[in-house]
Amino acid sequence: MATGGRRGAAAAPLLVAVAALLLGAAGHLYPGEVCPGMDIRNNLTRLHELENCSVIEGHLQILLMFKTRPEDFRDLSFPKLIMITDYLLLFRVYGLESLKDLFPNLTVIRGSRLFFNYALVIFEMVHLKELGLYNLMNITRGSVRIEKNNELCYLATIDWSRILDSVEDNYIVLNKDDNEECGDICPGTAKGKTNCPATVINGQFVERCWTHSHCQKVCPTICKSHGCTAEGLCCHSECLGNCSQPDDPTKCVACRNFYLDGRCVETCPPPYYHFQDWRCVNFSFCQDLHHKCKNSRRQGCHQYVIHNNKCIPECPSGYTMNSSNLLCTPCLGPCPKVCHLLEGEKTIDSVTSAQELRGCTVINGSLIINIRGGNNLAAELEANLGLIEEISGYLKIRRSYALVSLSFFRKLRLIRGETLEIGNYSFYALDNQNLRQLWDWSKHNLTITQGKLFFHYNPKLCLSEIHKMEEVSGTKGRQERNDIALKTNGDQASCENELLKFSYIRTSFDKI
C-alpha cells in the first residue's frame, strides 16, 4: 500500500482533458527560462521544448504516446526543470519506465491550478516501474492521483506527508504495488545497510526511497516546507523545498512566496507586481503582455491589467481597466465587458449561442446573426445582446428569417469595421425574408467608422429604411451602385405612401 494514499474509496472516473512563447529569463536562482504550460502528445517531438525550461508557468501534460519505446527515452533528460506552477499529468506514455532521468531536479509542483483537485496525476502508464522524482520536495496545493499503472512499484516507500501538507485526498490505487509483488529495495538494503531515512506512518517504520538508488530526502521537522541542505541544516524561511546553503534567500532552489532578481522575498516591493503567484514583474512586463494579447485571437491570451499590486489576466467583477495605466478602477454604474472572439468572429444561430455573449459591452471581433427560429426570440436576444455598444469588426445579418427588427441591439452605437466582410463591408444584410426595420432612427444613433453597407434580398425592408441608415451611420456616399439592390429590397412591402385627393359631386333626387 502506498504510504499516505487512500484505498478502496469510491472515486469519480478520471477524465483526461485534452506555445513556446518565453516569458522571460528567471535569473540567477533558476538555471534556465520560464516556459508556458505545455500539452505534449502523440510523439516526442515537442518534448524537446523543455530543454531550457527551469519553470513551467502553467501545467505540463505528457500523454497518448503509443509508439514510443524505452530506448526512445534513454537520452532524454531535462535537468534544468525545477518547478511547475500548476500540475504534472502523465497518461498512456508507452515505453517510459521512470522519471528519474527525465526530470531529475523537479523540486516543486505548486498546484496553482489543479487537474480535478490533483497536482500530480500518473494514470495508465503501462510501462512505468517507478516514479523516480527523487528531488520532489513540495506539492504546495492539491493532491496526488496514481492509478492503474500495472508495473509501478516504489510507492509504499514514499512518505507523501513530507511532500504535501495533507495526504487525506491522495488516491493511489490499482498499481502493481497493490499486489505486494514489488519487493522494493532501498539503497544499501541488499548489503544489509540502512542508507535512507525511515519514518513512521500508520504504525509502520519504513525506509523512504524513490528507487533502488535514490533515497527520499527527509528534512528535520523544524525546517517545515522550506527544505534543508545535504547536511540537514534548514533553508531560509522564504525558500521552498530545498537550498544549497542554509538561511540564505539567494540560495533557495525555489521560493515559498515570490522570486525577485535572484532572491526569494515575502512580497513584491514597489515598483514590482505579483505575477502568477510566484514571481515579481515590473510595469513594462505587464504592459507588454497586455499589448501582445490586445489584437491576438490565441486562446488563453489575456490583456493583463494591474489590481491590488498584482498583474492579473482581467479586472475583477465591479472594476474596469483604465487604459492609460492598466489599473483596475471601480465602475460607475454597470461595468464594461470586452469579449474577445477566439477566431475573430462568432455566429449567433440560437439563443444558446447568444447567451455566451451575455453582459458583453464591447465585441472584439465580428458578429454573424443567422437565426431561423426560436421561442420568445426578441426578448431572449435583447437579454443577451442588448448591452453590446461596440463591435470592432463587422455585423452580418444573414438568412435570419425569424427577425423582424434589429432593435434587440438596443445599445449598439459603434461598428468600427477594423475587419470587413469580403474585404469591403462593415454591415452586411443578406436574404432576411421578414426583416422590416433596422432601428427606430428617431431614437437610435449608430456610427460606422469604416467599410460599406450591403443589402440584398431583404424583400420587406424598404429602401427608405436603408437610406436612413446611410445618413445616420455616416456611410452615405461610400456605397457603390450594386451594394444596395434596388429590386430585391422592399419588393414585397408597401414602401411608397402617396396622399390621394378626392373630389365629389353631391346629387339628390331633384338636383344634379
Rank of each mutant, 00 (worst) to 15 (best):
H28C: 10
L29R: 11
V34E: 03
C35R: 01
P36R: 14
P36Q: 15
G37L: 05
G37N: 14
G37R: 04
D39S: 09
I40V: 15
R41G: 05
N42Y: 12
N43C: 01
N43E: 04
N43F: 03
T45S: 08
R46Q: 04
H48T: 08
E49F: 04
E49C: 15
L50H: 02
C53W: 00
C53S: 01
S54K: 04
V55A: 05
I56Q: 00
E57H: 13
E57C: 03
E57Y: 07
G58M: 00
L63T: 07
F66L: 15
R69L: 05
P70H: 10
F73A: 12
F73K: 04
D75P: 09
L76T: 02
L76E: 01
L76H: 05
S77A: 03
F78A: 03
K80F: 04
K80N: 12
M83E: 12
T85S: 05
D86P: 00
D86I: 01
L88S: 01
V93K: 00
V93I: 03
L96S: 02
L96F: 02
E97K: 04
L99G: 02
L99N: 02
K100R: 10
K100M: 10
L102T: 03
L102Q: 01
P104E: 01
P104Q: 01
P104C: 01
L106G: 00
V108L: 13
I109V: 10
I109T: 00
R110H: 04
R110S: 07
G111S: 02
S112G: 06
F115Y: 07
N117M: 12
Y118Q: 15
A119M: 00
L120P: 00
V121T: 09
I122E: 01
F123N: 06
L128N: 01
L128A: 04
K129H: 12
E130A: 06
E130K: 09
L131G: 02
N135P: 03
N135T: 10
L136T: 03
L136V: 06
L136W: 01
I139L: 07
I139A: 03
I139C: 02
T140A: 11
R141S: 05
G142I: 02
S143W: 09
V144W: 01
R145T: 04
K148H: 15
N150Y: 06
L152V: 05
L152G: 02
C153A: 05
Y154T: 11
T157I: 08
I158R: 06
W160R: 15
R162A: 10
R162M: 08
I163L: 07
I163F: 12
D165K: 15
V167H: 10
D169P: 13
D169M: 07
D169V: 12
N170Q: 06
L174R: 13
D177V: 07
N179M: 06
I185L: 09
C186E: 05
C186Q: 01
C186Y: 03
C186S: 06
P187C: 02
T189A: 13
T189G: 14
K193C: 15
N195P: 08
C196N: 04
A198G: 03
T199K: 07
T199V: 09
N202H: 09
N202Y: 11
Q204N: 13
V206Q: 15
T211Q: 02
T211E: 15
S213Q: 12
H214E: 06
C215V: 12
C215S: 07
Q216P: 06
V218D: 08
C219S: 04
I222W: 15
K224A: 08
S225T: 11
S225H: 10
H226M: 08
G227F: 05
G227S: 12
G227V: 09
G227I: 04
T229R: 06
A230Q: 15
E231P: 10
G232S: 12
G232L: 08
G232I: 06
C234Q: 02
H236L: 01
E238D: 11
L240R: 05
G241T: 11
G241L: 02
G241E: 02
G241S: 08
N242D: 08
N242T: 09
C243S: 00
P246S: 08
D248C: 02
K251S: 04
V253M: 05
R256S: 08
R256Q: 11
N257C: 00
F258E: 02
Y259L: 06
L260T: 05
L260M: 04
L260S: 02
R263K: 01
R263Y: 00
C264F: 01
Y272V: 02
Y273G: 02
F275R: 01
Q276Y: 09
Q276T: 10
W278E: 02
W278M: 02
R279T: 04
C280S: 00
V281D: 00
F283I: 14
S284R: 13
S284I: 05
F285T: 11
F285W: 10
D288K: 11
D288R: 14
L289A: 09
H290T: 09
H290M: 12
H290R: 05
C293K: 03
C293M: 00
C293Y: 02
N295Y: 14
S296M: 10
R297M: 09
R297D: 15
Q299N: 15
Q299G: 06
G300K: 15
H302Y: 07
Y304W: 14
Y304E: 01
I306L: 04
N308L: 07
N309T: 09
N309E: 09
P313A: 06
E314M: 06
S317D: 05
Y319Q: 09
Y319W: 15
T320Q: 08
S323H: 15
S323Y: 14
L326F: 15
L327T: 06
L327I: 08
L327W: 03
C328V: 01
T329L: 09
P330V: 04
P330N: 09
P336H: 10
